[in-house]
């Protein structure tokens, strides 16, 4: 019995040691980033490592420098428009489609839905080159918000997720509304949308994070500095011959990490629910 207890104790100890080990690995790089940013200017902190932030003013100076000397402020603006507009427009499109697929029967429904779902297995990156050619040659949208935002709006995953949710709305509710004389659109707008609030909000957070983390498309479609997204600027900073010090790169990293981190802190449950959802239904 005592052997069993000992085994249990060491097992528990091992469990906690392992847990803390992974905790350090998960959190330390983020902490290190903050540490590098908030250290005196001009002395790259990694050359003389210390484990705590040592200069608030140094950090503010670095952030000011990238914001006002390196165009980061404008990139922030571009990224917020990009993410905000994508969330808004994409949810409008997908929720309208999900409303139809989730609640009604009409000829061609199965075909159309399967047609859209086909995109889920089709790797996105593969169509990058022709998409670029389409957007620039046919629409002339190089270096514009239109070119940045519009091609990413038809979000098949969002459609799938919202349809699953809307399907569960009781049919009686819809029928009752129709009897009351509500139009097709107002049922969508006044009943279905409010009822799917939670799912839509989860999706909105997923789309926001995904768009904020987008590098490939902005890199392809935006070549002028006034249209650089945050991701694009960080890519630029990391290339040789750009005369940015490693401290500035970290300051940029830090500022780029803030919006998703804030979203996570405030809406943790939504974020994790969204992920778990991806896993169960995807």
């Amino acid at each position: 019995m005592s052997f069993y207890l000992l085994q249990k104790r060491t097992g528990q100890l091992f469990h906690w040691v392992l847990a803390l080990f992974f905790l350090v690995i998960a959190v330390f790089p983020i902490y290190w980033m903050i540490n590098v940013v908030f250290s005196p200017e001009g002395i790259p902190v990694s050359l003389d490592p210390r484990l705590y932030p040592s200069s608030l003013s140094g950090g503010i100076a670095k952030i000011k420098d990238i914001f006002f000397e390196r165009g980061f402020l404008n990139a922030y603006y571009v990224s917020f428009i990009y993410a905000g507009a994508t969330v808004l427009l994409s949810i409008t499109l997908t929720s309208m489609a999900a409303y139809e697929f989730g609640l009604y029967d009409f000829p061609g429904k199965r075909f159309l839905f399967a047609f859209a779902m086909f995109a889920l297995i089709m790797p996105k990156t593969v169509s990058m080159i022709p998409l670029y050619l389409t957007v620039t040659n046919k629409f002339n949208w190089l270096n514009t918000f239109k070119g940045l935002i519009i091609p990413g709006l038809a979000d098949v995953f969002g459609l799938f997720m919202l349809r699953q949710f809307i399907e569960q709305i009781p049919k009686d509710l819809i029928d009752a509304a129709r009897v009351d004389g509500a139009s097709h659109f107002s049922i969508y707008y006044k009943i279905v949308l409010p009822l799917s609030k939670n799912a839509i909000f989860t999706l909105a957070i997923l789309i926001f994070n995904r768009t904020w983390g987008q590098l490939t498309w902005p890199m392809i479609i935006e070549q002028e500095q006034n249209m650089y997204t945050v991701s694009r600027i960080i890519n630029w900073f990391n290339q040789p011959d750009t005369w940015v010090t490693s401290d500035s790169v970290m300051a940029a990293n830090f500022m780029a990490a803030i919006p998703p981190l804030i979203v996570f802190l405030f809406f943790q449950n939504y974020v994790m629910k969204g992920v778990a959802y991806t896993g169960i239904k995807g």
Binding site: V27, I30, G213, L215, M250, A256, A257, P260, V271, V275
Partner: peptide
């Protein structure tokens, strides 16, 4: 805490690790 790194966009994680 374990989920925290997944919040960070991939390009950003690479940029942070690059300097580590």
């Amino acid at each position: 805490a374990y989920f925290l790194p997944s919040v960070i966009p991939l390009y950003l994680a690479a940029s942070v690790w690059k300097w580590i």
